[in-house]
Design a binder for these strands. Structure first.
Lengths: 142, 142
DNA sequence: TAATATTTAATCGCACACGATATACTAGAA
DNA sequence: TTCTAGTATATCGTGTGCGATTAAATATTA
């Protein structure tokens, strides 16, 4: 039996489990990230930097889908923790460049074990992981 | 070619597209929800109430995967907007019961068109939607 | 029944997300 | 070259999320 309000039932939404799963996974990272003195958003920021040092904020924001209103305070915190340096580009004084400190580079080795622990806790088959990954990037890229 | 740092590349994470897609979808709701004077979290809260009026905060929190530290201020805002009433249970004075106001009930009819607009904007096939939905609930329930 | 344990919600502090706006710098056009 | 448009970052205010703690009410146990 269906009625005109079916469309606004919580259990018929796709947005809701996306939101709830995202929150849940971020929560599940906390015990691991506490050891590294990182929040989740700081962690994914460090991931970008581990892959590409001396990136500017704009490029960083494009990779993370975040803008300066989120990144500026976040980068300041990473700087206070001694993981990154922030300086202005000499080519273009509007841009800021983010570089890893020695401490920030060292952190990389401590992070290696985290993804495995998290992904195991999700209890998904390889197929499910692949499909989920592809569908999510399809949504992101559209 | 693989190396020991592959596991901590952003593009090899499942958590990241989950986080980014969740944020993206919540952003995409904003123009629709502005018309209803609701934030995204307030919207999913209203969805629960449209399905089950006079629910207590605990049950509400279980459905939304949220606790009082998030719900208490959120419910106060919905009360200020005139969409809900909050009162103590007479059976158990620890519990608070949330009920819809007339205005809150009326809002339901304005919300009906939103899910279709959002889901179309994701450009997914039926199969992809089904698989995504099932996988997300598998993660939530494990 | 009195002491203790459990449950429910509220409060606190911190760190995002994000729309809107401001500011500083650069590039392009007249 | 000067005026204007565009770009990159910072700032502000609001509303979450969430771990930790507190407070109040109820349930359990000695």
């Amino acid at each position: 039996m269906s009625n005109k309000y079916d469309s606004i039932k919580l259990e018929n939404q796709l947005c809701f489990p996306l939101y709830a799963v995202s929150n849940k996974i971020i929560r599940s990272y906390k015990p691991f990230l506490d050891k590294l003195n990182l929040t989740y958003t700081q962690y994914i920021t460090m991931m970008v930097l581990w892959g590409q040092d001396n990136i500017n904020q704009k490029q960083l924001g494009e990779k993370l889908y975040l803008k300066s209103n989120t990144l500026t305070p976040l980068l300041k915190k990473l700087e206070e923790k001694g993981y990154i340096n922030i300086y202005k580009s000499s080519n273009d004084e509007r841009q800021i460049i983010i570089s890893l400190t020695k401490l920030g580079i060292q952190l990389k080795d401590q992070a290696i074990e985290i993804p495995k622990a998290i992904s195991e806790s999700m209890h998904l088959e390889i197929d499910e992981i692949t499909n989920l990954y592809n569908t999510l990037y399809k949504i992101l890229d559209n």
